[in-house]
Write a protein that binds this DNA or RNA. Structure first.
Lengths: 257, 257
DNA sequence: TTTTAATATGTCAAAATGACATTATTAAAT
DNA sequence: ATTTAATAATGTCATTTTGACATATTAAAA
């Protein structure tokens, strides 16, 4: 006999202990790019980074933690996560997704608090303003590598590990690469983004596979200018590279085909 | 300033409203099989079904709902879900997986209650005892089709829809088919199980694709008897069919290869 | 004996893959 | 003016895979 089987007459929500809060924590991923050389045209160095906040109060004061906050009864967890994301980054309407719940007893010294973890993917262009403003602030980006070496608050290291595995899988099975790319991009950029998230990724003849229209029903398509000419870019190379964009095609993968 | 930034001195967990409970709800899927004919050897009719419970008390008394119950502060949500699953089906150690949180305000008339949804996949062989015992009981299996036509309690229809989409994706991208099959199975059975969950699934030359060792690094392997001879079954057909089992190979899918 | 339902193999052109080598482009350096 | 460097793209070709159909196997049932 559990609470569900009580009837209106004897129902009393207060007779069991209830949680002490329902927070949303967000792993905010971005890929930063920095020039590898000042003189020549070359692809930038790219790095997967996450945003962390230095805690001021108890518990875990002085330690770095994932951004997050408690939700209230008037909003969904997604709304809460979006609100927190907007507070930390100043952006809304980016890719954000529910991901897992963390409920190990005593994971939070403040009480019985189940954390709801979200993953957000933010293009670095949205973080540029912020970046300038907080040198030596209590909010900053860390490379995932760095972050994993740190002692993070709560079980946030585990949350980070799990979220990393999640976006590595998604990078190869969905089109989330687009979240880290400009609208129009070169094959080289796309390849770099994939490798930044999944270092082991390697595909010989990548350009041929990705641009072969037959099998992959046009995952990406060539960009053309107003004049109908193929639009190219020589930002990274002497030889101009064709620009592509993602189509709205949703690939369906199967281990049985 | 949120609760995370309070310090030990002025921290007071009671100053915000807190949730009125943290339940786990479970979508328990099974595939039932029933003979299509009494006389001839033929493949059975298979149907995807879920387990529902008729509610006795407020709220939603008399309506059918997903099995579930409130968790307590001494256990994880997964422990809670496993406990509920064991109560309803008498089985433990089956495939069970966290899936999503449902937090729409007022989704539960009893208060602010965020539900944690799990998916469990149970082989029908574990439900056989139970099935016999409760004709006309308040716990029974419904085909997914039926269930979607009913007025389920809470937002359980939405949870069902989401979980269905989830296992359809997983059926094609992971080896969850094994949860619905005996240890040793024929290609025909495997094909049927996939189609039962994903009706649109169709693969010409399925047997050749699935048994070609080169590409799919041995997703399944032939079963041999003690004598080293290939083990076959003529349960469903005149001509004996080769028996296979899943290997522990984990397929890695990619839209870029 | 013939039919039947499921299982399995034969055939063969078309397409995709894998592994390398080669060519193209052109701003920047010399 | 010539060379260099970095990225982009194509050439080649043997090997595999796929797609679409036709054909064979088996043993119980009609």
């Amino acid at each position: 006999m559990d609470q569900f089987t009580e009837n209106a007459f004897n129902y009393d929500a207060g007779k069991y202990r209830t949680p002490d809060g329902a927070p949303a924590d967000i792993v905010i991923f971005t890929i930063t790019s920095s020039p590898r050389s000042t003189k020549k045209k070359s692809l930038p160095h790219r790095q997967l980074e996450i945003l962390l906040i230095e805690r001021k109060g108890w518990p875990f004061a002085g330690q770095w933690a994932l951004p997050g906050g408690f939700s209230n009864e008037k909003e969904t967890l997604l709304d809460c996560a979006k609100r927190e994301l907007a507070e930390e980054t100043g952006v809304d309407s980016v890719h954000i997704e529910y991901f897992n719940a963390y409920s190990t007893p005593d994971r939070d010294p403040r009480g019985w608090i189940i954390s709801h973890a979200f993953v957000a993917l933010v293009n670095e262009k949205y973080l540029e303003k912020r970046k300038a403003a907080d040198d030596a602030a209590d909010v900053r980006l860390f490379s995932v590598e760095e972050a994993l070496k740190m002692e993070l608050a709560f079980d946030h290291r585990q949350i980070l590990l799990d979220s990393l595995q999640q976006i590595q899988r998604q990078m190869l099975t969905t089109t989330i690469a687009k979240e880290f790319l400009p609208e129009e991009f070169t094959i080289g950029e796309l390849y770099q983004v994939i490798q930044t998230v999944v270092p082991s990724f390697e595909e010989k003849n990548f350009i041929r596979k990705i641009t072969a229209t037959r099998s992959r029903q046009g995952l990406i398509e060539e960009v053309r200018g107003h004049d109908g000419e193929l639009k190219q870019s020589n930002q990274y190379s002497q030889r101009a590279a064709q620009l592509y964009r993602f189509t709205d095609y949703v690939p369906q993968l199967s281990i049985y085909s």
